Simulated scan of single mutants.
Amino acid sequence: MASSLDLSYMKLVRFTFSLIDCWPHRDMKSKKPIPLANNKFLFCEFRLTLPWTKAYRQLIIDFVENIHIFHYKGDSDYSKKMHYKIHKVSTYFTIFLHVQMYSGIILFNITPLHNNIKAGLFKEKVSPNDTIAIELSLYYDLPFDCQENLKAYFAVFIFNFFVSFVNTFTMCINELFISLIAIHLWGHFKILQYNLINFPRPKEIKLNISYDEESTITNLLIKYMKQHRVATDFLSKTVNVFGPTMCLYYLFQQISECIVLCEICKLDAEALGKYGILTLVIFQQLIQISIVYEIMSSMNEKIINAVYGLPWEHMSVRNQKIVLFFLQNVQVPFNLRALDMVPIGAQTMVVIIRTSFSYFIMLRTIAYD
């Protein structure tokens, strides 16, 4: 494989992004696989305006060409092992999310159709007084009647499929990309931690004797400092690009979780068929991003301990200064706040879920009273 895009899950990610024109084909000078896809016709979706920005497109390019763990698998045996591990996790994660998306879209739209067929949508009416309450996945105030006209009904049915498709992909693919970035950055930090823990030690420890008269130790320290800077800089770019989106995403989670809980609380076949997968996806997306970034955030302390564990006491004064500078850099906490206000992690996840259930219980109590 010559490129990270040759990996199976990256092909799927590229294709999925291309369906709603969120892949920077022009910037990467690649052929567009879906010629008719154009997000400029879907500008009402806030997240679909992100591909218009240069920062978003450059973020994808940097991830594919520079950050992807594929480019580092030849550095060492541990890097190769970490590449395979990240590849498996990313593949399973990508496939699982796609199965959720397609299942949710199909069930959300097919359930009302199934109910209409059971009610006799395609059967001749027994008497003129018979009426069928036509169900739709989404309802509109239309200038024509789709209750009596089958052609109008199926036109709305197909349109609802399209709307569900666009909204589902818009809701999920950015979370997929953000999660993949976090997984790969976690891999970078794990490789860096391993390299620091296994940093070359002096063969004989003697008082006041330096073991790095040559430039080997200096070059290694500078190399690891650059690795840390590249990973943290890309993390900051990711948070800056997706900052406004993440704030709106948390607001969307707060509202949508209350709605789907109210819809699914009936626990009948219709509610579970129409909203079951949707509820699972909404909660899973929030938990997934929060847990992934919480795990990556925990690497900060591990990197600090690994740098402090370097045999700095046996280095020359010059290299001790480099280690000190390195230690100062790694002590800066990761910037995991959307718009520098909302923390991205488990704490925010718990608050949103707890608040959603509180609102749901309140609304359910009011409804029954």
Rank of each mutant, 00 (worst) to 15 (best):
M1W: 11
S4P: 08
D6T: 15
L7N: 03
V13F: 09
V13T: 10
R14A: 12
D21G: 09
W23E: 00
K31L: 02
L42T: 05
E45T: 03
Y56V: 09
R57G: 06
I61N: 12
N66Y: 13
F70Q: 11
K73D: 03
G74H: 10
H83W: 14
K85Y: 02
F93I: 04
F96N: 02
V99N: 03
Q100C: 09
I106C: 03
F108H: 00
I110A: 08
L113V: 00
A119Y: 09
G120E: 04
G120R: 06
K125F: 06
P128Y: 12
P128A: 13
I132D: 01
L138H: 02
Y140V: 06
P143G: 13
P143H: 13
C146H: 11
Q147P: 05
Q147E: 15
K151T: 15
A152T: 07
Y153Q: 09
F157H: 01
F159L: 08
N160V: 05
N160I: 05
V163C: 07
S164K: 01
N167C: 07
E175K: 03
L180K: 03
F189G: 01
N195D: 07
N195A: 09
R201I: 00
I205T: 15
I205M: 12
N208T: 09
N208G: 10
S210D: 13
S215V: 11
S215L: 10
I217H: 01
I217T: 09
D233P: 04
D233M: 14
T245P: 00
Y249W: 08
I264V: 15
D268G: 07
A269W: 14
E270P: 00
E270I: 10
L272C: 11
K274A: 11
G276Q: 00
F283D: 08
V292Q: 08
E301C: 12
K302F: 06
V307E: 07
G309Y: 07
P311R: 02
H314A: 08
I322P: 00
L324H: 13
L324W: 14
F325C: 11
F325W: 12
Q328S: 13
Q331R: 13
F334W: 12
N335L: 12
A338C: 06
L339P: 10
V342S: 01
M349L: 02
V350C: 07
V351W: 04
V351A: 11
V351M: 04
I352V: 15
I352Y: 03
I366Y: 13
A367N: 12
